[in-house]
Design a protein around this nucleic acid. Structure first.
Lengths: 214, 214
DNA sequence: ATTTGAATTACACAGACGTATAATAAGAAG
DNA sequence: CTTCTTATTATACGTCTGTGTAATTCAAAT
């Protein structure tokens, strides 16, 4: 009499991937509290019990999902440099522009990032993921700045990368939260001009949009 | 036989105030999900039912609490200008410095702000509170910039205030999330130098710390 | 003193939460 | 075709959630 739901067996990797993606989806849509065990399982097309088969607890899944989110965001930024020009100034310009425009700057991404922020402050494991990725991004930026044809001490480089990172983060935030208040082109232009002013280089003039993508 | 808990009647204003404060406290400590009706009531020293006597729903209380948070943050920034110098450059410097140091920049404040961010994106009412306060802050900044002794078009002023606001927000964020990674004095110095570079004025040199406070 | 209105407490309810455990069936191995 | 492993489903449990409603008790008005 019992009609048990039919199912397919999948690889562990695939199942974990699906569950992580489902969790991030739900957090993006409805905040952390929307990503319940039942909702995640439903979105991933499995039953709730399976989550505890692949993750020791919901907290465990949350941590893994956050790590995945961070890796993706860093990856999006870094991938810009793959097809970037050789000229250091143009490279920096493209990196800055990419960091304040989609897909890096995006309401959903900011929502996700914010949803996890509280746990980041509380949970040491998540805190370390954050710290690692923050410095990873800043170091990318610092390398690009260091490559510019000019003289700069190490201490000055550090200060400049913090400052530029600040501009980028701030504009990333505002542009993503109030997307209708700014045109993407305007945000890019402001970011380039500001970073240029901080570094005392003509960054906006050196910017060449990437024409290989949309 | 029934031992009913004794209580004092309080003014509506006082009770609402206490409940709002309790809610913000709990959100700061444990995120939005920690601010349950029962926990809020407990913290405020009342029973859960009372919340629905002063607020039509928990969502209502949440909205009001967020509004209070924003007002307080804007107020902290604005109050700096009360005892600020008359010199426009020094005024701007103090405003910028205050925005990236305590009590404006503070891990708890950032945690609170982030906890509400998702609802801000979703709920139109909360969204309007955010927008209003964002522009309120940016207009304060723009006024300070406009008061500087130099020539600047309206369009340039807008761009500069967006850029400076970006730097401030970004440094506020990073300094608050990773307080141990930066000294407060360092963040202030970076903020002043960066804003100065964007506006092309000697802001760091014009900074005079407020000695009337701690 | 008594009455009266409403601020406050007390209790109940239905649903959702994360978790634990037992039952089943898919798919590989023999 | 049969056996065996385990990925997956199913179900139950206790707790917590927001909300609705009735019972009380405070404090002011009379």
């Amino acid at each position: 009499m019992s009609h048990r739901r039919p199912y397919r067996r999948e690889s562990e990797e695939r199942r974990r991937e699906d569950l992580i993606a489902a969790a991030l989806d739900l957090v993006a849509e409805g905040g952390l509290h929307a990503a319940t065990v039942r909702a995640i399982a439903d979105r991933a097309g499995v039953t709730p019990g399976l989550i505890r088969h692949y993750f020791t607890s919901k907290e465990d899944l949350t941590r893994v999902a956050y790590q995945r989110l961070m890796e993706d965001m860093i990856g999006d930024s870094a991938s810009v440099l793959l097809h970037a020009p050789a000229d250091p100034l143009a490279r920096l310009a493209r990196f800055v522009a990419a960091s304040v425009s989609p897909p890096v700057a995006d309401p959903v991404a900011v929502g996700l990032w914010a949803a996890f922020l509280h746990d980041v402050r509380r949970d040491p494991a998540m805190r370390e993921v954050h710290t690692t990725n923050y410095f990873s991004f800043r170091n990318m930026l610092q390398s690009l700045i260091a490559a510019l044809p000019r003289e700069a001490s190490e201490a000055q480089l550090r200060r400049e990368s913090i400052a530029c990172n600040g501009v980028i983060d701030g504009l990333w935030l505002e542009g993503s939260i109030l997307p209708e208040a700014f045109a993407t082109a305007e945000i890019i232009d402001i970011a380039l001009t500001s970073v240029g002013a901080i570094l005392n280089v003509a960054l906006a003039a050196a910017y060449q949009p990437d024409r290989t993508q949309t």
